[in-house]
Design a protein around this nucleic acid. Sequence first.
DNA 1: ACACTACTTTAGAATCATTATAAATTAGAA
DNA 2: TTCTAATTTATAATGATTCTAAAGTAGTGT
Lengths: 138, 138
Amino acid sequence: MENNSIFIEKLRSSGLRPTKQRLEICKLLFDRKKTFHFTIGDLSKILKKETNKKISLATIYNTVHSFKKKGYLKEISINRDKSYFDTNTSNHHHFLDIDTNELIDLKKEDVDKIKIRKNLPGKKIQSIEVLVKVENNN
Amino acid sequence: MENNSIFIEKLRSSGLRPTKQRLEICKLLFDRKKTFHFTIGDLSKILKKETNKKISLATIYNTVHSFKKKGYLKEISINRDKSYFDTNTSNHHHFLDIDTNELIDLKKEDVDKIKIRKNLPGKKIQSIEVLVKVENNN
DNA sequence: ACACTACTTTAGAATCATTATAAATTAGAA
DNA sequence: TTCTAATTTATAATGATTCTAAAGTAGTGT
Ligand SMILES: [Mn+2]
Ligand SMILES: [Mn+2]
Ligand SMILES: [Zn+2]
Ligand SMILES: [Zn+2]
């Protein structure tokens, strides 16, 4: 009744054992059409609701960090209070709704290519990220 | 022997009493030609060295947050571990050296104007920030 | 199926930047 | 100088994240 086999392969191929905790988290994170932006706290709450068996908070942290290390998640820092993770691991830009603290992906075509006209000697560019903060129209 | 009068005015005009702690921090932060990017930890260390009288950590936090509220400092979140503050309160972009965790201002002319081709209904853009992560050339 | 070992999960403790508290001090006004 | 509100301060509390070390599990080989 599940397409778990896909996730099992995904995990195995990156040297992670497909435990039921990891599979549960995989289904929750990667069985989506749209990008998912979440904090560990969000994820923890959702797992509590949508799952019968409990997954310890330590495991959620461990798993999310493993997934990040394997390149399945991207971490986004927008404020010190909490770290956001992103199922869209490509280079992309974001809207941040400062009223709701919600992140929204911008598509390639939504932002002109950024051209940086300065370079630092001995340094090379690793990434260019745009954060567009938006708020309610009065 | 000081141009404290400038800072005293600055503080008074925004309803902050010019205490010696605030003046000390003003001198350290605003008596510079270049932008200063710092964490509270940085500031605390510098104050310990460059000052004879001690300023409590709580006061450093209070003061930096007051200055931010008054618009004399800008907060920049680049990772969850620490919050950076910026004496350049204009809208501007940054290099982040991921080897040293150092922030460097980009000038207006260093980055083409960013054009966002998407808008969210009911929302207006409050700011657009570019973060260019750089690392050592091999 | 069984045993073995490395990997994983887990509860709880530890960490650490930040925030809150509430008592002592100080600045500005009268 | 006196009075009051603003400020400073030491200290405790908070809370997200990381650490620990003990118990459980998956994969391998027999
Ligand atoms: Mn913040
Ligand atoms: Mn981080
Ligand atoms: Zn995203
Ligand atoms: Zn800056």
